[in-house]
Every structure is written in C-alpha cells, then in structure tokens.
C-alpha cells in the first residue's frame, strides 16, 4: 500500500512538473508578446506544440547517440525532479530526497546537458557542435557562483540535505533570501545562466548558430526536449524555492513562489541582448563569483 502510494506520488510529481512547466512557458510567451506589442499565443500553446511534435515522424537518422540525447535529457530532468522534495512536509511529493541530496543534485543537473551534448555532437552539424561547446563553457561559468551559493547555504545550515535546509527556514524572516541575500544574488544569476534566456542564450543563439544543439532535431526528439525542458524548469524552480524561499507547504504556495522567481529571468530575458560567449563566462566569473565568495565570507563571519 505504501509502495503504491509512493509510486503514484512519483507519477503525480512528474504530472505536476510537466503541467506547471508548460504553463509557465506559456505565461512567458504571453508576457513577452505583450511587451512586444503582440497578442501572443494562448497559455497552453506549448502543450499544443508538444502534442504536435510528438505526433510527427522523423526521417533523419544520425546514429544511436542522436536517439539517446533527448532520452538522456528527459531522464536527467525526471531524475533531478525525483530528488527534489516538492513540498516541505507531508507525505506527498517527497520523492527520493535523502541526506546529501544537494550534492547529488549538483551532479545530476548537469547530466541532462551532457546527454544532450552527446546527442547533438553525434549529428555532425557544426552549429550543434559549437552550441554544445558554448553550452558546456557556460556551465563552467555559472556552476561556480551556483556552487558558491550552495556552499554558503550548506555551511550556514551545516547540512547537505535539502529537507533540512527547508526545515530551517521556518519563518519568512528565516528565508535564505533574507538571511543570506548575497548567496541568493549569486544563485539567481547562476539560475539565469541555467535557463538559457537572454543575455545567456549563446548556446542557442539563432542569429549565430541557427538554434545550436537542437538544430538537427525535429518531431518527437524536439517534443521530448520540450517535455524535458518543462519538467526541468519546474525542478529548478522548485529547487530554488526550497533553497531560498523556504519551500512550500502546498502546491499553491509553491506555484506563487516559483512564478515570482521565474519572473526574474523572464523579465531580464525580454529586455536584454545576448552576451557573447566570452563575455558571458567572464561575467559569471566576475560579479556573481565575487558575490558568492562574499556570501560565504558573510556566513563565516555571521557564525
């Protein structure tokens, strides 16, 4: 009985993640359109796109790794999600969180990108290859402030368990965003890098690489990637909500907090041009890294 409940919980998590993910993306498309003086598509447009893509057949074959790429990507997204507790407490949506899950997440979050990189590299399209190399370079860029921010939190809370970090933020004043704003800033800038919205969309830059890694992928592959993207977006947002906004005790709270967090990359994405690759990496290594180090110092000093 318990097992059944757990398993159904996993599926529920995936369902919620997917739904919230595409709704958020739809929301982003509408907001972007409105700022751009357009009406924009309906909020469920991404769902329609995914359904359409899944219904297509793909005639191109670049070898096994091309099939595996999107599969890796979706696997990584789901796995990441599985190790993120969606709600602070209660029995539902806890998934596989365990002691030290934060360290595990640091690795597993990159896994999807690596899988994609393998798949895209297989296609032989130079645009994909360059996109992949840029993407990996950018990971190198934003991982540093991200790790610094996480380190600050781990040091502060003396734990590597996400659950415990969540539990520690028991009141609004106890939220890490207020307790350690520098870590939040470093983390959110790294988060901008993770979302691949402008100014950090060099891997995909249409004007340069014609969308980069996914350029040889269409139909079901693209559908898989979009599905993966929806789930991964939710996973990341949930992670950040858990880390800095004290998690959520119910789904509604989670949605509100996640949306608030999501607005930051969306808004910045609307109004900024793209950094060049080296500008982006230098940027990550400069401001957010300094802020990240400062946040650790701050924690050390506070303690």
């Amino acid at each position: 009985m318990e097992t059944l409940k757990t398993i159904s919980g996993y599926f529920a998590t995936i369902g919620v993640a997917f739904t919230v993910g595409f709704l958020f993306m739809g929301f982003r498309r509408i907001l972007t359109a409105r700022v751009q003086n357009r009406v924009g598509p309906p909020i469920y447009q991404n769902l329609l796109d995914i359904i359409k893509l899944w219904s297509k057949e793909s005639a191109i074959n670049h070898g096994l790794m091309q099939h595996m790429g999107p599969a890796f990507s979706i696997t990584a997204s789901v796995t990441t999600l599985m190790f993120i507790p969606v709600l602070r407490d209660g029995n539902w949506f806890q998934n596989f969180s365990f002691e030290g899950d934060l360290i595990f997440l640091l690795y597993i979050m990159v896994f999807g990108q690596l899988g994609m990189a393998l798949g895209a590299g297989q296609t032989g399209n130079p645009n994909s290859a360059i996109g992949v190399s840029r993407g990996l370079s950018q990971i190198v860029g934003y991982e540093i402030p991200f790790v610094l921010a996480l380190t600050a939190l781990m040091v502060y809370h003396e734990t590597t368990s996400l659950h415990e970090i969540m539990a520690a933020q028991d009141s609004i004043g106890g939220w890490n965003i207020f307790v350690n704003p520098l870590a939040f800033v470093a983390g959110i800038i790294a988060f901008l890098g993770m979302t691949h919205y402008t100014p950090f969309d060099v891997p995909f830059a249409p004007a340069e690489l014609a969308s980069g890694p996914p350029s040889e992928f269409g139909g079901k592959y693209l559908g898989m990637m979009m599905t993966s993207g929806s789930i991964f977006a939710f996973a990341k947002l949930t992670l950040f909500v858990n880390l800095f906004l004290g998690g959520a005790s119910n789904l509604l709270e989670l949605l509100v907090k996640a949306l608030a967090l999501y607005l930051i990359p969306v808004i910045i994405g609307i109004v900024t041009p793209r950094f060049r690759t080296e500008q982006a990496i230098l940027f990550f290594w400069k401001w957010p890294t300094i802020i990240g180090i400062l946040s650790i110092l701050w924690v050390v000093w506070m303690r």
Partner: peptide, 16 residues
C-alpha cells in the same frame, strides 16, 4: 541590429 544581438523585443516593436 537588435535581433542579431538577441534583443528580440526590438524587432517586434520596430517591425510592428
């Protein structure tokens, strides 16, 4: 000019 730099809001405005 803006679109090639990734500032996608501008082309929507100016072309509109």
């Amino acid at each position: 000019q803006s679109g090639s730099a990734g500032l996608y809001t501008m082309p929507q405005w100016s072309v509109g």
